[in-house]
Design a protein around this nucleic acid. Structure first.
Lengths: 256, 256
DNA sequence: TCTCATTGGTCTAACATCAGTCCATTGATT
DNA sequence: AATCAATGGACTGATGTTAGACCAATGAGA
């Protein structure tokens, strides 16, 4: 028989040890995939989140490779994959570069359900994590307060999403939500928020944008901003929870 | 001159583009270091967070390599590094394995300030991120409610940290805080919480554990648990903020 | 019309990492 | 005392990844 201590390391159920979820969290995979796959994922994220809008170009290969911490060869393989997928267009010479082609084709209705089933429990994981991040972020903002420049940025994003054309709505909605995380001033938080939004984005893009939903969201967005500017953490929390629950319900409704 | 759209991709300051922090978040390095370094980091995290307590052993190399998503060779190199650092003891044969040696030596007083200076802005990043995660988690718990088993786990952790010997305090305090994240049921959240705790742990371990601080924390821990069990999100938020601000102030006090 | 800075395209040699296989050791169990 | 299952230790060949240097193309600006 193993010793008790050794057993604790395996099961985590003993006094000195840990519950399994925490052990799983620490001993989780060091890397999600190989460098190529992860690079493709990131570049797709940049496109889907609108970080590089249609018609714009990515930074030059050398710069981009440095930013992603990846060799130029690996980056080029990833770019070639995006090119073959029609997401991106490459032009040589000075003032050339890698340009994002038109907006990605709208996925078919059935696509959403399939993706959701692929995600499985990861969907609830993402929805919960998103709520934790956004509720926490918005309360930090409400507690700490915003300076004039931050206030201006937030109001600008709010105005942008309110007056968005249906085709731009998702991108501007993403921008609004990520701005909330960004204003909290923690790059880890911004990265986590971008990551979780990315995970939900395929699903969100698969559900139609109805004028009625936009109006509904606009009211909630305004409530969030109002609570933040008023410095009322509890109101901010309620507004965010209500908004996210609405989106989550909408999502689940299309998938149930 | 580049086109406006292309310029937006670089500066992110244009209408269609993004603010720099978000672009930085999406285009951040794909991997923090090489597989060896990241593996060492994870194993050290498991030791420092108490996931594998002193005297206990890690899972067998083959299992551990699989869990970390790394080849056995890379894992062995990492283990050898820990062995040479005296953190770990390797025994061959059945019932052998990789055992954690005694608790890591207490860092000298001056060490803390040096580490804090090394972290630089990353310290504020971590403190902010931690607050967002824990506030968000605790409010999800207070809103959603706990079942009997979860209630029991939470109370057990609370009791454990309250009755901790000074030498065990940090480990049990870590366990308590990570349990809050864990109960929210999102593995992404648990991983993020473990990660940020890890970043702060070297600093926390460098400040002395005073009986007075323990008592103070015990009151706050009880307040957090009370608010969660009472289903009062606002009280939970206040309790967490108060507790974390206290720790943050203590930290900054020792470093200022 | 020509220049040339900037960009993508290509190659090589070195290093990192991997999957798989087999060997050596241990000690509780029989 | 012998057995043997589980563990760390060591090796091979294949594949992934990198740094760095150099070539080729482009088109705005002189």
């Amino acid at each position: 028989m193993p010793t008790d201590a050794a057993d604790a390391a395996t099961t985590g159920s003993e006094f000195r040890g840990w519950s399994d979820p925490t052990a799983d969290a620490v001993l989780r995979p060091v890397r999600a995939g190989n460098a190529f796959e992860e690079t493709v994922e990131r570049l797709m994220a940049a496109i889907k989140l609108g970080v590089v809008p249609p018609g714009a170009r990515f930074p030059a290969e050398r710069d981009l490779a440095a930013r992603l911490g990846v060799s130029r060869i690996t980056l080029r393989e990833a770019l070639r994959a995006l090119q073959q997928a029609g997401q991106v267009e490459v032009r040589r010479g000075r003032f050339g570069g890698t340009f994002v082609t038109g907006p990605p084709p709208a996925p078919e209705p059935g696509e959403a359900r399939r993706r959701a089933e692929d995600m499985g429990p990861a969907l609830d994981d993402a929805l919960t994590f998103r709520q934790v991040l956004e509720v926490g972020a918005v309360q930090v903002l409400a507690t700490r307060g915003l300076d004039d420049a931050q206030r201006e940025v937030l109001l600008a994003r709010l105005a942008a999403v309110d007056s968005a054309a249906p085709g731009d709505y998702r991108r501007l909605d993403t921008a609004f939500h990520l701005t909330l995380a960004e204003l909290a001033g923690s790059s880890s938080l911004t990265a986590a928020a971008a990551d979780v939004r990315m995970r939900l984005n395929d699903l969100l893009n698969a559900i139609p944008v109805l004028e009625r939903n936009i109006e509904h969201s606009a009211v909630q967005h305004a409530a969030i901003v109002g609570a933040v500017l008023a410095g009322d953490p509890e109101a901010a929390r309620q507004a965010v929870v209500e908004h996210l629950d609405g989106t989550a319900a909408l999502l689940r409704g299309f998938l149930a």
